[in-house]
Design a protein around this nucleic acid. Sequence first.
DNA 1: CTGTTAGCGCGTTCAC
DNA 2: GTGAACGCGCTAACAG
Lengths: 345, 345
Amino acid sequence: MAGKANGRKARNGGGEITMSDIARHAGVSPMTVSRALSDPPSVSEKMRRKVDAAVRQFGYLPNRIAGSLSSKRTNVVGLVVPSIRNSLYAAMVQAISDVARANGLHLMIANSGHRLEDEEALVSALLAQRVCGLVLHNTAHSRRLRELLARTDIPVVETGNLPAKPIDMAVSYSNFDAARAMTGHLGRLGYKRIGFVTLPLRDNDRSRERRRGYFAALKELGLPADPGLVMEAPGGFAEGADALVRLVQTHPDIDACFFAGDVLAVGALFECQRRGWAVPGRIAIASFDDLDLLRHTVPTVTTLRIPRQDIGRRSAELLVNRLRGASRQKVRIDVGFEIVQREST
Amino acid sequence: MAGKANGRKARNGGGEITMSDIARHAGVSPMTVSRALSDPPSVSEKMRRKVDAAVRQFGYLPNRIAGSLSSKRTNVVGLVVPSIRNSLYAAMVQAISDVARANGLHLMIANSGHRLEDEEALVSALLAQRVCGLVLHNTAHSRRLRELLARTDIPVVETGNLPAKPIDMAVSYSNFDAARAMTGHLGRLGYKRIGFVTLPLRDNDRSRERRRGYFAALKELGLPADPGLVMEAPGGFAEGADALVRLVQTHPDIDACFFAGDVLAVGALFECQRRGWAVPGRIAIASFDDLDLLRHTVPTVTTLRIPRQDIGRRSAELLVNRLRGASRQKVRIDVGFEIVQREST
DNA sequence: CTGTTAGCGCGTTCAC
DNA sequence: GTGAACGCGCTAACAG
């Protein structure tokens, strides 16, 4: 009864301190310790004090692995983003993290690198960890991932784009509408030859939707759709600069360029500074996503404000509500966007 | 034996599919399923095929919670950063994530918001989740956190600064040395009145070390230490611009300014563009941390290159080696830094 | 409000 | 190479 000498592999020098240890030293049952820790009001003042004292004395940290196995619930939310480095995702992740923390949840983050197979593998791994909810920054999943998610009953929030038919819940803006709106905006400002620089299209429905929006707006504006005015570029300052230069050289009559990625736009703007091309005099520049940077450059850059932080916050709130028992119904929230007209157009 | 009707709260509509289920359907023992999944070579070809078939048929996902409880090990690494949004941390996190993933580990990320009490609470929570290792982007911990970490025997990597006496392992550069080197560099370029703009000093040993380095260099250069040339500013473009303007107005003879944060420096540079102050003609600008942005602005900005990605990679590698059985000895790796001289100085 | 009993789903250990 | 027994540390469910 005293202490079954835990023979060999005593890595910790004696095994973990358990709830029973605390219970024994506090002179109560393990169950009372459990309750005192997870639901203090359900235990009498006297008991609680004894437990707290023993907990402090031993520096006891409950084992949530054991707790999770027993209760069949974890307090861990899984999150898959295309890239951790990108500041756009970072704003969303931060918001999710804040809401999660306020509700006693933890975050397990993985990045898919824009690869659908990786997304699938990562979600599997997160499900194996029995996360209590998932946020996926992608809506174009592999077939196997769809099947996997269909079989699970944890809440799932998709974001990054507005899917026609969400798996469970979706919080996003429409990439199509946003790109169409900005292109239309440029048209109404009087620009006639509007270039479009897109991020890689492969495995990325968001990029494809943006391009579709661009062409839709051109049609609505009665402007010709010239495939030569569209360029695909990996994200980066240099790539944006490069794309702009090539567009201007091949299409000297270009008078505006819409970049489907903020870094691309800024790179292009700097290139204009270097070459002495007036912005918007020689060429107007519009961007996608309201990086803080864009309102401080010279000139400031017209862009689309996507409420990334709201997306994160609302996604997390949806998860939390579900975990608190909200009924399971499909949700599809369009957070919208906003055109921010600045000096560059 | 067939199936103990699992009465009431069948949330999943019948309870989880377990290893026993798979074993039964594959006609083997649960132990064989376990081995086939975690160490395939230890099982005969025939058994493995039967198990694999059943696993696929049922879409079985092993419960890592149960596995972790049983084996007393998790494959989850805990990570605490001051802020998820900041791109500096993002580069490090990405590198850690990559190494972790390559080694079958997952990441649980929390952000302390630069608050030491929060760091303490978050580490406690991560330890309760029984993470197998920790990376902390901070070296100035609360006393209670130090005690907590002293009692644990999981590997801990500290980063963000080079502590004199690491808790366990440390991978970083020296903020003091870096700031001293850049200030010295400016002095040797001939600048005589060098301003210094620091990020908030509270609860941030990194900021304080940088300021110390600045003053040490001034002394070595034989320049007077003028407290009026030092300003504290929260991070941000506008704040950097503001700080510069105030320094120039109160000290018209200032000829260079060293910003201990990249965003501050860029904000100041843009302000110079707006005001038509030549950089470095009127005032030279130096920054801290080699944001991609800094090599694309006009003019490009002199800065300190900190190998953030290496820091992440090596931190993760140290953890992995420990988990693989490397002996427990203190490690203190100085990854160094590099001065990148560009057009702004 | 408190205690008792009985697992949670797996891996360790030892026998075969 | 395979299986049976046992327990990881905690909480759900019920009884008092």
